[in-house]
């Protein structure tokens, strides 16, 4: 079963106007999955992580409903067939 990224509206333009991206292969971790996503759509990388590879403060990534901030971060395992959500956090002022 492929792993599927759900892309937020703002970023769809940098993912070939797709709201979902299915990955070939079986990434073991979120880091691996994101690496494959960057390979397919390089424009997503700078918007989701900073120069140090850290997920931006006001971007949340969920694997199967769990925020990776509260699991193992980028080392969070990605089960086969997972849906990975990239969601803008509540922010601003």
């Amino acid at each position: 079963m492929p792993v599927t990224f759900c892309i937020p509206n703002y970023l769809a333009a940098f993912a070939g106007n797709r709201s979902a991206v299915k990955l070939e292969g079986s990434p073991a971790t979120v880091r691996d999955a994101l690496g494959e996503l960057w390979r397919l759509y390089p424009g997503l990388r700078d918007r989701i992580v900073d120069e140090q590879g850290e997920v931006r403060q006001h971007v949340n990534i969920f694997v199967g409903g769990d925020a990776i901030r509260f699991t193992d971060g980028l080392a969070t395992p990605v089960p086969d067939g997972s849906e990975i959500l990239i969601v803008p956090a509540v922010s601003g002022g």
């Binding site: 940098f14 390089p42 424009g43 990388r45 700078d46 900073d50 120069e51 140090q52 590879g53 850290e54």
Partner: peptide
Amino acid sequence: KTYTVKFPEESGLA
């Protein structure tokens, strides 16, 4: 498409 003004990774800065 990719950001143009950004620090090199080895700088440790973002």
